[in-house]
Amino acid sequence: MAQSSKPIVWGPFAAGGTLTAFLTPALMVLTLLAALGYTPDLLAYERLHAFAGSWLAKLALAGTVFLTLWSAAHRLRITCYDLGVRADTLVATLLYSAALAGTAAAALYLSRI
């Protein structure tokens, strides 16, 4: 039997899932802290803006956005199938396109910094 090409979509999904598992709790804590007015100096807007100014940071940020969005898109695709939505090609196209659009937007905004 032919080897499946599912790894193309599964690879970024698995990487994004792992990344999200580590990043999401940290982001939640930081967001809560910021909401309560306790933004640490290191994460002040100016500092983060300067950080996103370097090309390496831009690449890492775009990569993070891509992987997390892709992971969510793939998980939603599988969930749709399990819930009985069998138009898999349509669902996959829509969701992956959304993830790619989000990534493109992130790349555009990052390039303007």
């Binding site: 039997m1 032919a2 080897q3 499946s4 599912k6 599964w10 599988i78 199938y81 399990d82």
Partner: peptide
């Protein structure tokens, strides 16, 4: 073994429930 388990109806049907 990969001939069978790396195919579409092999491991890739698993959605990790």
């Amino acid at each position: 073994r990969q001939e069978e388990i790396a195919a579409a109806e092999g491991v890739w049907e698993c959605s990790f429930t």
